[in-house]
Every structure is written in structure tokens, then in C-alpha cells.
């Protein structure tokens, strides 16, 4: 029996090394954010600061208006975008899962084809800016990522095909329930696991999205947290110059350029890291679902 097992000690050693490789980069950012600004300039980034300081966080705290504002934009976009996205994808996927649906193959193909071919950034950009004129609106952060592509729809379709017994739908129809009612009252409640999984993936996409903000938004008051971070990378003074961030309490504090960046990165990382242990299982399930043929 023993020969059939890999050496457990070697395995654990390997994975402890992997764990370090995954986490150490985060640790560097984390400890830099607690370093004194002068010490960061002279001693560089270290895993253990020679001089600890809360200066960067103090600064963030005082200029918190713009950060809190960006947080709320991110939160709003994530929640509303995910809810609407999941609703629309499942509504589109359900009829496609019904074997008796007329034109089912045509519509399925139309969904599937969006995964094979797309118009690319230029024409999409022109449609959204010239046709829908969503530039510098909250919709710019939400609409372009709503269904991403046919992918989630196809996952929903597979689930509905496998997980919803035909007899249940048919008997409800015989009892006089309309197809819409069947969908909302019977199909959706039976599909909570897949809704949770796709909702999770969708919300991670929204929370981490900076691309739509980068191309469609120039107004600072619509910046998501990611866009604020992105902007601060190229323009660290941004927090200082934007009128959202100015506060009289800051005038006396020296602007902590390097550590402030890292503190911002920590602030951006924290929500997902804290929530991660709770959703890890669903995430793993969601990622695997995506790889299943369907």
C-alpha cells in the first residue's frame, strides 16, 4: 500500500513552498504599506519594515471621501450588475434548454457564436459611445460586462437541461401556469446552486473590472476602486489634486507617495481576501463548471 502513495512529507514540503510563492508577493505589499515613508525611500521595500508607521493609512483615512466614494461605486456596480446579469442570462438560457422550443438551435447558435467571433474593441467602443452614449455614466461600468459573452448562458442552459425535471414543468403547464410563471416560480428556485455559482463569478468580474472604467469613464466621481487604483499608479498626486480628496486636516501631513500606493493596494485587496474562505467552494465549483463540455 505504501508504494502506491507519494511521499507525503515531500508533497507537503512542495505545497508549503507553493503557498509561500503565492503569498509572499502579497506580504511585501502589506508590509510596505505599514512602513515609514522615509524608511521606504532609503531602505526600499522589505518584508519586515525597519520603521513601522501608520502614516499611509492615516492619510487614506483623512482623505477617505474619494476612497469611500469609489468603494460605493464598486459595490453598487457589482451588486446591480450581477443581479441584472444573472437574471437576463438565466431568462435567455431557460428557453434554450427546452427541447421542445421552436428555433432553439438557431438561438443557441446565436449565443454560441458570440464566443467565437466578436467585433473587437473599436466597434464595441463606437457602439457604446456613439449609439448608446454611455460614456461617463454609471451604465458604462455595468452594461459592457452584463453577459460578458455566451459563456454563462451556456452554463445555465446545461444546468437547466440536466437539473430541471421535464415532468415538473409539464405538470405545472397542465395546471394552467404560464411559461413565465413556471420559470420564476419553479425553475429559478430549483436552480439556486448554479445561480450562486455564476453570481459569484460575475461579481468577482465586476469587482475586479477596471477596463470599462478605463475606456469609458474620465470623471473621477464615477471611478470604481480599481479605476482609482489604476489612476494613482500613473498619477500618485491624484488623490491630492482631485477635489474629492482634499481636506483641511491633510495640509499638515506630508504626502506619503510610496507607502500610500501600497496602502491603497491593501485596501483594494482586503474585501476579496476576507470573503475568499467563505466562497472558495463555490468558486472552485464555478470554475469547473466552465470547463465542462456543453
Amino acid at each position: 500500500m505504501k508504494s502506491n502513495q507519494m511521499n507525503q512529507k515531500v508533497l507537503h514540503l512542495l505545497f508549503i513552498l507553493m503557498t509561500c510563492a503565492s503569498l509572499v508577493p502579497l506580504l511585501l505589499v502589506f508590509s510596505a504599506s505599514f512602513t515609514d515613508e522615509k524608511s521606504l525611500v532609503t531602505n526600499g521595500y522589505t518584508f519586515w519594515p525597519s520603521e513601522w508607521s501608520l502614516g499611509a493609512y492615516r492619510y487614506l483615512f483623512h482623505s477617505s471621501t474619494s476612497i469611500l466614494h469609489s468603494y460605493s461605486i464598486s459595490l453598487f456596480v457589482t451588486i446591480v450588475g450581477t443581479a441584472v446579469g444573472v437574471l437576463i442570462s438565466s431568462m435567455l438560457a431557460y428557453p434554450l434548454s427546452r427541447k421542445d422550443m421552436p428555433l432553439r438551435n438557431l438561438f443557441s447558435f446565436l449565443v454560441f457564436f458570440t464566443m467565437l467571433f466578436n467585433g473587437g474593441l473599436v466597434t464595441t467602443y463606437l457602439v457604446y459611445t456613439n449609439l448608446l452614449e454611455i460614456k461617463n455614466t454609471i451604465w458604462a461600468l455595468m452594461i459592457p460586462g452584463l453577459l460578458t459573452n455566451g459563456f454563462f448562458i451556456l452554463i445555465f442552459r446545461t444546468f437547466f437541461t440536466m437539473g430541471i425535471p421535464k415532468e415538473v414543468v409539464e405538470s405545472a403547464y397542465m395546471d394552467g401556469a404560464s411559461e413565465v410563471k413556471i420559470f420564476f416560480r419553479i425553475v429559478l428556485p430549483l436552480s439556486l446552486p448554479v445561480i450562486a455559482t455564476i453570481g459569484l463569478m460575475q461579481s468577482i468580474n465586476y469587482w475586479n473590472d477596471w477596463f470599462n472604467g478605463l475606456i469609458y469613464v474620465t470623471k473621477p466621481n464615477l471611478f470604481t476602486l480599481q479605476n482609482l487604483l489604476n489612476r494613482m499608479m500613473s498619477d500618485i498626486q491624484f488623490l491630492q489634486t482631485t477635489n474629492l480628496g482634499t481636506s483641511s486636516a491633510l495640509s499638515g501631513i506630508q504626502f506619503p507617495t510610496g507607502t500610500l500606493r501600497m496602502a491603497m493596494a491593501v485596501v483594494g485587496l482586503l474585501p476579496i481576501m476576507l470573503a475568499y474562505p467563505f466562497f472558495q467552494r463555490y468558486l472552485v465549483k464555478g470554475l469547473t463548471l466552465g470547463a465542462v463540455k456543453g
Binding site: 437576463i88 442570462s89 431568462m91 435567455l92 438560457a93 431557460y94 428557453p95 434554450l96 438561438f107 446565436l110 449565443v111 458570440t114 467571433f117 466578436n118 467585433g119 473587437g120 466597434t123 464595441t124 463606437l126 457602439v127 449609439l131 448608446l132 452594461i143 459592457p144 452584463l146 453577459l147 459573452n149 455566451g150 448562458i153 411559461e179 413565465v180 420559470f183
Partner: peptide, 18 residues
């Protein structure tokens, strides 16, 4: 009817750009 919002979205987001 259920498919309308999703298809409308795909037309705007995917097919018109195509």
C-alpha cells in the same frame, strides 16, 4: 418573451459591433 432582454443585449453588445 423571456429571451428578449438577453437577445437584445447580444445584438447591441455583439452583433452590431460585428
Amino acid at each position: 418573451l423571456l429571451m428578449v432582454p438577453g437577445m437584445a443585449y447580444l445584438i447591441i453588445n455583439n452583433y452590431i459591433p460585428m
